[in-house]
Design a protein around this nucleic acid. Sequence first.
DNA 1: GAGTTTGAAACT
DNA 2: CAGTTTCAAACTC
Length: 163
Amino acid sequence: MEMRRTDAANRGDLSPISPFTQFCLTSLPPIGAFSIRAESEAMDIEKEEVKPEAAPQAPTPCGCQKTHCLKLYCECFANGRYCVGCNCHNCHNLSSYEEIRTESVRQILERNPAAFRQDAATSHKACHCKRSNCIKKYCECYEDSRPCTPLCKCEGCQNMGNQ
DNA sequence: GAGTTTGAAACT
DNA sequence: CAGTTTCAAACTC
């Protein structure tokens, strides 16, 4: 049900065109004038507006192509940050897309209420590796320099620290 | 840089 | 809840 509502929201139900809408449509420049480059500029603006010196440690730029950085696949989004200086395409993980972004957050929280909780993220984190033996960065435990725990469901684990 | 491999996230 | 697909990153060549 609520997912339906999302779809409707994304499509934007603008059935009746009000005089104001008509005014906007006719007075704004053609969409072609904006091009994708406009989003890059928007991103730069974002960089300036949100936190001019918020990236002292270069927070790992993402390279998302299909998800608009609105899924947990996106590290920036998963960590509750806007994308800044990333290599992503058509990024919607920006304050200028706040409505869409918030809706995506809501959906994800619906699935997993702890999705954006840092403490939960650091404490649970059980991997399910099958081929990397947990000694490559494919393994999240290994990537975080953390031994796998008995909660992990990995096979052939070589990242058990002791035992 | 292109192509492959990998496992989490998403979906059914 | 289990199996499958999608995704972006790690890795290899």
